[in-house]
Design a protein around this nucleic acid. Sequence first.
DNA 1: ATACGAATGCGAATCAGTCGCAATACCATT
DNA 2: AATGGTATTGCGACTGATTCGCATTCGTAT
Lengths: 150, 150
Amino acid sequence: MIAKINLKEQGLTETTPRLAVLKAMEANTAQHMSADDVYRYLLERDRPLPMSTVYRVLAQFEQAGIVERHSFDAERTKQVYELKDSEHHDHMICIKCRSVHEFLDPQIESRQIEIVENLGFSLTDHSLNLYGICAGCDRKDAQSEEAIKQ
Amino acid sequence: MIAKINLKEQGLTETTPRLAVLKAMEANTAQHMSADDVYRYLLERDRPLPMSTVYRVLAQFEQAGIVERHSFDAERTKQVYELKDSEHHDHMICIKCRSVHEFLDPQIESRQIEIVENLGFSLTDHSLNLYGICAGCDRKDAQSEEAIKQ
DNA sequence: ATACGAATGCGAATCAGTCGCAATACCATT
DNA sequence: AATGGTATTGCGACTGATTCGCATTCGTAT
Ligand SMILES: [Mn+2]
Ligand SMILES: [Mn+2]
Ligand SMILES: [Zn+2]
Ligand SMILES: [Zn+2]
């Protein structure tokens, strides 16, 4: 399901830092990784890379279309990256546990295009983030409320 | 159309800085204001406020539900604020001229709720930003392309 | 007018991310 | 395999946006 990414095919020479960051991303497809996550992953499991290089390589990857950058978290500004090999999707973020659920809704996707067309606007990109409380946290909330009542 | 905002009703004492920031926001409902925009507006038209106070007051307003904070601009992290007296709406941002168009689509709004309900998630907030090129910039683009051909 | 807590002004600090530049690594060519 | 020129890296310094600490001042209820 994950297409093997070849740096050369993306117009990037294969250097040690780039391969390391790519490996870090491929080893963590289940999560959205901050630059710091990548940094720490490499520090622990591979060889350390300076943060500036991590950022630089991620920026190169973003330009090459290998990764996508998001900023969830309406308050904080920390950015996260994910490999772009899967299909486009939007995100649902739990404001309690920070977990992120991915989804794709064809109705919303196509409606967006209709909206912009009606305004002579051409769409290049979009970001839809839903914020709320996930099923797991909701359950925990209910439990602790009950506990307080005792 | 703009409901007069009363600080006391929002649980905030009426201090000079707070009234000044509120006036700045009310005088600029047509745009989304950065903290710096507010700072400069007050510097020029009113009395100067330190940036830290501008930020603090905007944060207080956000908590009180008087303003809403957004971060458009997928790359940069600069945040902007707008008075929350109008109805909820989403944003369409021109990546050329940075102009922002506001819209509200009932279909998308209700679809979002359906999506989260199906997942036992409870929705507290959302942000939908469409990025692209506005009609005006599109026209200018076409013109300059023609000019190059000559 | 007084007193107390809340809010402000000031500058220092933080935080994420970027930049300049000398040292190094790639890679095509001998 | 050595060479050379370019692209990339490592390092630290730097930036811009935002936040914090704390002494001072303001707002409000006596
Ligand atoms: Mn994702
Ligand atoms: Mn708006
Ligand atoms: Zn959760
Ligand atoms: Zn435009």
